[in-house]
Design a protein around this nucleic acid. Structure first.
Lengths: 226, 226
DNA sequence: GTATGTGAATAGATTCACAGCT
DNA sequence: AGCTGTGAATCTATTCACATAC
């Protein structure tokens, strides 16, 4: 409260729940910036993100993003701060393992490139798929993964294989030096402690919806969950 | 009748965090059942699901699933109980709005059918796409959504449109009577209180990974997050 | 001996409510 | 007046530890 001590970028731990909301704030802020809006209040940002305003303020207090009392937050400033925290501002090239239906769709998804996650390359274990051109990129064999990562500086791996092949795919990625993995395969995978895995499971999401639906139709006084 | 509080299926509220883990347990249990395993301990199931064993026990205590002390849980029984809680055992047909890259991939994803979520139909706002056959189904125009839902008994909607079209797509789904929606568009959507929306946002997931990666490389004493 | 079931303890996240700045 | 920033209160979730049952 007297001296502005240790102020290194990203040195304080930001709660996971906050980190998960930052991308949503960022999206809303980019829309505002596009529309020429220069300041936004916590209430305004809360509406865009679908959360509570006090939550927004507390979240932003973890960053080095301060607002002006009586006015609000400067949109451009928030965009910079959040972008910095989420990946340091540099693009993170992505390698995709598994070029089935989902892998192909992901490789063509332009939201990745726009969000700073260009596709560095595609690999597949199936020789019938290797060599084919998908979304402008030639699919390479799995044993070239390490060199692909080295060449392109890829930092993120996406697993889009069948469940049975997911653990092996993760092993290849880790061996190639990748430490951030997004796993679309419906399978819990084991990784060393220094590797970060996030699971995106479509069937699981549907089943969670199924629970609430089932409850709504059989139970009585239930409350909708977001 | 004056019968006391008997166990109506799904009458107690199950914590959200537990609901989100049940599909993961179910997957592991189905694997065990396939392998002919008949009982499993909370420790065994915890390993399969990647969580703490006490957590498994507490989660299962919310269901009507009891184990045998000194032995464990009966795999077949758990499968039935969890399946029942997650959607009542009946299949929930799914309509997909938006037949771009992602919509096509989802419509071909066999995990849905296997998990009790058959594709009831596809719709798209683009006349150039309407009428084309995707994954064995003819794409229908958005204004046929209500009749499609009525015909097929679809209970779940998947939004796979661009962000700008997501709110409108959700509006159509709600108007057609759908009350469970899985939104793949990177956009916060507003829905009436009786409608349940879950967001699956690929760019957001990558950005969360980006935060941890950035922290690992710039910060020092950090701990890996699951 | 082994494994469940659960109260108690701990940790984490959200929301409230208001002091303090512009 | 309006809006941020944050301690305190509340709610939710996880983990521990052990009595209880097989």
């Amino acid at each position: 409260m007297t001296e502005p001590t240790r102020d290194r970028t990203g040195d304080e731990p930001i709660p996971e729940a906050t980190v998960a909301r930052l991308p949503v704030y960022l999206r809303g802020l980019l829309e505002l910036a596009d529309a020429g809006v220069e300041t936004v209040s916590s209430v305004g940002l809360a509406e865009l993100a679908g959360v509570n305003a006090a939550n927004v303020r507390k979240d932003l207090s973890y960053l080095h993003a301060h607002g002006t009392r009586g006015v609000g937050y400067e949109v451009g400033h928030l965009v910079s701060e959040i972008s910095l925290v989420l990946g340091g501002g540099r693009p993170s090239p992505v390698v995709i393992v598994g070029v089935g239906n989902l892998g192909r769709a992901l490789s063509r998804y332009d939201g990745f490139v726009a969000g700073g996650f260009p596709i560095a390359g595609l690999v597949d274990a199936d020789p019938a798929v290797v060599g084919r051109k998908v979304a402008g990129t030639v699919v390479r064999p799995v044993d070239e993964l390490a060199s692909l990562v080295a060449e392109t500086g890829a930092t993120v791996g996406i697993v889009a294989t069948p469940a049975a092949a997911a653990q092996e795919a993760v092993g290849h990625l880790v061996a190639a030096g990748i430490r951030s993995i997004l796993n679309f395969a419906p399978s819990v995978v084991a990784v060393p402690a220094h590797v970060d895995v996030r699971q995106v499971d479509l069937a699981t999401e549907l089943q969670i919806l199924g629970y609430h639906q089932h409850r709504r139709t059989t139970g009585d006084t239930s409350r909708a969950a977001g």
